[in-house]
Simulated assay, not measured.
Amino acid sequence: MWQYQVSVDNYNSGKSIKEFLIDNYLPKHLRGALRQHKGLVVNGQIVATSYVLKIDDCLTMRFNVDDFYAPDSYRPNYHQAIKVIYENNDLMVLDKPAGMKMHAHSPSEDDTLLNYAAAYLKQNQTLSAQAPAQPYMVHRLDRDTSGLVLIAKNPIVVPILNRQLSKKEIQRTYYAWVKGHMSATTGIINRPIGQHPTDDRLRWVDDDCGQTAQTGWRVVEQISDRSLLKLVLSTGRMHQIRVHLASVGHPIIGDSLYGGLKASRLMLQAGQLDFIQPFSGKNLSIKLKNNQLFWE
């Protein structure tokens, strides 16, 4: 059983439990599960969704394991430590190294970020929602991209964070060294991206059949034959930043797939994540420090 407790503050006071759950993006099937097995408890008493929350109420949501879709299971791998940049009871933000896959594609595979995250949580006997924490992927980075990635620790907050992602309330900020100097200091690349017609590994700009994709950029620094860009995604297509920058003649340095100058690694890093803490409304902004950024 998963049990999630909320201490009601000014942000949620005055709302019915139904309003509270909807406002916080808890999916309909989970709201229904709470009603059906009487899983809503305030100050030790079972209540209905019509109950109006008051300051300092203790709301407990009790979920059964089968209220959730079967999660992916990641075999713990203790052979490599992960870099935890931020952590609370619900989630953690990790610094993924370049060259590491996000998750396994087969039960026997264990050299991925989520395998190492599973080991970290188990080794520390971490609890989340009063049960052993497990790593749940919210979004992903390409294998060759480094930087910040958000990992949930219980299944309750996963759909909430997914909804934030779909509503563009999670903002991902990247940094990249690219070939050449940009023609302006800021801009937006707004071109659809689709699967490459001859190579399944690649994506390309496809004005006829591609999916909408938008990347905003700003020049941070320019030296010799290259520029450092700060990039913000409005969409999350596979290889989006790499394809967009290559399409305007400024491929990322180290990007062997899309024509970048040769380098020891892909010079693309997720440097900042902004999102809302589930059930609290608190805005969180997690950044890599200067001495953790790949160009320092």
Rank of each mutant, 00 (worst) to 15 (best):
G249M: 13
L229T: 07
I46C: 08
S7C: 00
R191N: 08
I286N: 06
Q292K: 04
D142Q: 08
M92C: 14
N64Y: 10
A213W: 09
D207F: 12
V205N: 02
I55T: 14
K282S: 09
L30N: 01
G39Q: 11
Y175G: 02
G32N: 08
G44M: 09
L34D: 02
L121F: 13
A176C: 14
A117Q: 03
P132W: 10
H79I: 06
L229I: 03
S285G: 07
N190G: 04
T212K: 08
N162D: 11
F63Y: 14
Q3W: 04
K122G: 07
V47R: 14
L202A: 03
T49K: 10
S108H: 12
L231C: 11
M238N: 15
I156G: 06
N124S: 14
L53S: 08
D72Q: 15
P76Y: 10
Y120Q: 01
V149G: 02
G187Q: 10
A48S: 15
W295E: 00
N89T: 15
P71G: 11
A131G: 04
P197C: 06
L165C: 07
D200V: 12
D56H: 14
I82H: 03
S280A: 13
A129T: 07
A246L: 01
E169M: 13
L150A: 12
P159E: 13
Q134N: 11
A117H: 00
K18Y: 06
Y174H: 13
D199H: 10
K230I: 09
A133H: 10
P159N: 06
M102L: 07
T145C: 04
L288C: 04
H105Y: 02
N162E: 08
L257F: 05
P155Q: 03
Y175N: 07
S108R: 09
L91N: 02
T49A: 15
V93N: 13
S16E: 10
Y69K: 11
L21P: 02
T198H: 15
D110G: 09
W204K: 15
Q80T: 11
Y74W: 15
S234V: 00
G249Y: 07
A98R: 12
V8I: 15
M92W: 10
N64P: 05
R35V: 13
I252C: 00
R191M: 15
V232Q: 14
N154D: 05
S128G: 04
G259K: 03
G254M: 06
H250C: 06
